[in-house]
Structures are given as structure tokens and as C-alpha cells.
Design a protein around this nucleic acid. Structure first.
Length: 271
DNA sequence: ATGGGCACCTGGCTGC
DNA sequence: TGCAGCCAGGTGCCCA
């Protein structure tokens, strides 16, 4: 489900509800997430005071006075803060009860999401330490991406979804950024010109920032920390629009498979 | 090193 | 109505 804009929207929504709160109880209904929750999980979190709620790539970093709760939402996960007495839903796997009378609930039907409680610098965790630059920071620029694409024969769509190249760009925004940069998703990464890479970097930054502004994209089940949807779906040019007219030139949008994922593009606008 | 494919899961939709 | 088959916002791991 969530790509960078949806995770960032969740982060921003959680922050005011979590910051400064004390965790009074932790209940795990299902330990079998992407990685099985260890027996120590509940005890490590219980009694902790929550600090900053951060994000790295598509991971949420919920800081506490004794370590960091690392959360990944996978394809279908969401985190919500609800009144503690609110009824539980199927697939509410973890409940973290706060001293505010509310409870942070992790719901994830497919269980591709994960939680880890880590002590020390979370940036050194195995899941984070090798990650590429954040797309919205200045270090992700044309110079960087141009160098990173040289010698690479993979399709540019596949390459920008690789977290060792740049993080946060998932299946929706990869197609959308390539449309906005007027580049065919099939182009070999190493064959892009300097100018084309520049357009792509700008398009990635623009599309992610625009999506964050309206709370991300809700296609099926994504909801933010308040349970509300994101509104970027209305701004999508190609994703899930196969057969519909391109919003720029009216040519039917096409769909294909790359790296076992659907790609959408306009064969006329994107060369 | 690079690229390609699979695996992990549940649920919703389509078509017979 | 039932059921098989396909598809879905991710990513770690294994193989050539």
C-alpha cells in the first residue's frame, strides 16, 4: 500500500498524538508479521515515553526514552490512534495503549509489514543502513542519479524503485514520475541523457511533494492516522488508467509488466 | 556487481 | 452460489 507520501502522512498524523505519551500496555494478537515479533517485544515497549516520530524511506521511527520502534506498513498496513475502547478489527495485530486514553493500533491484512524495537542508532539497523538517499533531500539530485544510472541496463522504472538507488518511490509514483518527466518506463537507465535524468529527478520530487500535500493516494485500503483517505488519486495521470484517455493527449493509457509489477504509461507522451 | 524471479500473505473482483 | 484464477501502495533473499 503505502509509498513515501502515505508513510509521511501517517507520520505527521501520529506525531501530535504520540509525542510525550507514555506506553501503558502492549498487546500482540498476531506475532507473525514480515518478521516474527520476539517474546521480548511487549516488555521492551511497556512503560516507555514516546519522543520524536520520524521517517526513513518507508519506515516509521517512533522514538522512545529507551529505543526506537521501527515500523514498516508493507502493502496493506496502517497505523491509527483510536479511543482505547474502540472495537477491534480483524487484522489488528498490535495494540499499543497510551496514557492519553487512546491506543495505537497496527492493522495489516497481508502481514507484509513489520515492527522492530531497536536500541542505539536506528540508522545502523540492518534494514536501514544500506538505504539510498531520501528523494526529497538536496543530496538526491541530477548529479547523483546520473552517476547511479551509468552502466545500468535495467529499465528506468525498475531502477527508481530500487531502494539502493533512491528510497520511497513505489509502484504508483514510479509510473507517475516517468509520465511527468515524459520518459518511457522501458528506457535502459544507463541510456538516459543528463538532461533526461534531470527531468526525472525533478519529476520525482514534484510528484512526491504534491502527494504529501494532499495526504497521499488511497486506491483501496490506505488510511492515515485519523482513518481518513488521501486525495492524490484524482491527480494521477496514468496509474490504474489503462485504456482511458491520457489526460494530456487523449491517447489510451497502456499497461505492461516490469519486474513482476504493473507499469502504466502514455505511449505518445513518453519517449 | 547486476539482473531476474520467488516468496511471504489476505481479500476483492472476474468469469465460468 | 461457488470456486478457481488473477491482481494488489513492498522488499529480502536466492540464483545465474
Amino acid at each position: 500500500m503505502p509509498e513515501l507520501p502515505e508513510v509521511e502522512t501517517t507520520r505527521a498524523g501520529l506525531e501530535p498524538l504520540l509525542r510525550g505519551r507514555r506506553i501503558v500496555a502492549v498487546r500482540v494478537r498476531e506475532r507473525r508479521l514480515r518478521w516474527r515479533l520476539p517474546p521480548s517485544f511487549e516488555a521492551e515497549l511497556t512503560g516507555r515515553r514516546i519522543g520524536v516520530v520520524g521517517r526513513r524511506a518507508k519506515y516509521l521511527l517512533i522514538g522512545t526514552d529507551a529505543g526506537t520502534l521501527l515500523v514498516h506498513l508493507g502493502m496493506s498496513g496502517n497505523l491509527r490512534v483510536l479511543p482505547s475502547e474502540a472495537p477491534r478489527l480483524t487484522h489488528d495485530h498490535v495494540e499499543i495503549e497510551l496514557d492519553s486514553g487512546r491506543t495505537l493500533r497496527f492493522n495489516d491484512p497481508r502481514r507484509f509489514g513489520s515492527m522492530h524495537f531497536v536500541t542505539g542508532d536506528p540508522g545502523q539497523h540492518l534494514l536501514l543502513r544500506r538505504l539510498a538517499p531520501e528523494p526529497l533531500l538536496p543530496e538526491f539530485d541530477a548529479d547523483y542519479l546520473f552517476a547511479a544510472t551509468r552502466g545500468r541496463r535495467v529499465a528506468i522504472k525498475v531502477l527508481i524503485m530500487n531502494a539502493l538507488i533512491v528510497v520511497g518511490v513505489g509502484n504508483i509514483y514510479a509510473s507517475e514520475a516517468l509520465f511527468r518527466a515524459r520518459l518511457s518506463p522501458r528506457r535502459a537507465a544507463g541510456r538516459l541523457t543528463r538532461a533526461e535524468v534531470g527531468r526525472l529527478v525533478a519529476a520525482i520530487k514534484r510528484v512526491l511533494a504534491a502527494a504529501i500535500k494532499v495526504g497521499g493516494t488511497t486506491l483501496r485500503d490506505y488510511v492515515n492516522a485519523d482513518g481518513g483517505p488521501g486525495y492524490f488519486r484524482q491527480k494521477l495521470f496514468v496509474y490504474e488508467r489503462a485504456g482511458l484517455p491520457c489526460r494530456v493527449c487523449r491517447t489510451p493509457v497502456r499497461q505492461m509488466t516490469q519486474g513482476q509489477r504493473s507499469t502504466y504509461w502514455c505511449p505518445s507522451c513518453q519517449a
